[in-house]
């Protein structure tokens, strides 16, 4: 029974990993662009949720949507003001620009919200469900299910709609897409908006269960990179599976071996997998 409990907890956590990682993989797939500020997007999503709860008294549905919307706008704004310009520069400039962006966002958050650890007051999702003896915190269940649904929806959007196809067309061949009458800038701005919005929702969902401070983005950013690499850069379903796998491995190894070993296990398996499949689980070689 305890084993089932550990597995359920790991999968729920993994679903959230999947959600915020899918945005990172989307930007990579679209533009071959590594976004080091992705963890910071998650962190900002958490603060948007806090502001909505404290100022407007909104519930999880309200602050989830508000975080998504606010981060979508921020993602588009960052693309138009910064990313669009540095993509013309050398690779190093691209890498360092988002690294600088991460520091800018993190220390702005320190400035505005202070370094204190904050957490959401008990919300309507504060309870715990007892499903056949397995305790599932309501907040985590909702977060896990929502994350799964949104990740799948993002995948369907990319593969099944015209707009999604246009996005992927730009990803595949920017010039050819331009010749087809697609405007790459708009598409890429949309990709940044979607990626940031995904991170924002993930942040809002995690804010229900986890206390945080502005430095939390570092931890999430690192996790997202591992998930994306394991799943295969550019693959949303890959990020989904990889998120679940990593959540599960972390939970099992933390329970059976102890929490300080969980990252050793995760990274050892990660390195071993990359040995055989350097492109990740579902990435294209």
């Amino acid at each position: 029974m305890l084993l089932l409990q550990v597995i359920v907890g790991g999968l729920l956590l993994g679903a959230i990993y999947a959600l915020f990682s899918s945005g990172l993989t989307l930007i990579w797939g679209m533009m071959n662009f590594i976004n080091f500020a992705h963890g910071e997007f998650v962190m900002l999503g958490m603060y948007v949720a806090l502001m909505i709860v404290v100022w407007l008294g909104g519930g999880p549905a309200v602050f989830g949507i508000a975080s998504a919307f606010a981060l979508f706008v921020l993602g588009v704004a960052i693309y138009l003001s910064l990313i669009r310009h540095v993509t013309r520069g050398p690779m190093l400039a691209q890498i360092l620009s988002t690294f600088g962006l991460a520091l800018l966002l993190r220390y702005t958050a320190f400035w505005i919200f202070s370094a204190n650890v904050v957490s959401l007051p008990q919300t309507s999702l504060g309870g715990t469900l007892n499903i056949f003896g397995i305790l599932v915190p309501a907040a985590q269940l909702v977060a896990g299910v929502t994350a799964t649904v949104i990740t799948i929806a993002l995948h369907l959007f990319l593969t099944g709609t015209t707009l999604g196809s246009q996005l992927l067309a730009v990803a595949e061949d920017r010039n050819a897409a331009m010749l087809m009458g697609i405007r790459p800038d708009r598409m890429q701005a949309l990709a940044w908006g979607l990626a940031a919005a995904g991170a924002g929702i993930a942040g809002a969902l995690m804010a229900i269960s986890y206390p945080w401070s502005p430095s939390v983005g570092e931890t999430f950013g690192l996790t997202a990179f591992v998930v994306v690499t394991l799943g295969g850069f550019g693959s949303v379903p890959g990020a989904m599976y990889a998120g679940l796998i990593i959540g599960l491995i972390q939970a099992l190894s933390a329970f059976y071996l102890g929490p300080i070993y969980k990252d050793i296990v995760v990274y050892a398996l990660f390195a071993a997998l990359l040995w055989f499949r350097p492109q990740g689980l579902l990435g294209k070689a």
Binding site: L2, V6, A251, I260, D263
Partner: peptide, 20 residues
């Protein structure tokens, strides 16, 4: 005795160890 890293974002497994 459960040593862990303070930057962790999830402690469910540790709490289950205690429960056991």
């Amino acid at each position: 005795r459960i040593p862990y890293s303070a930057s962790t974002t999830d402690v469910s497994a540790q709490v289950l160890q205690l429960k056991e």
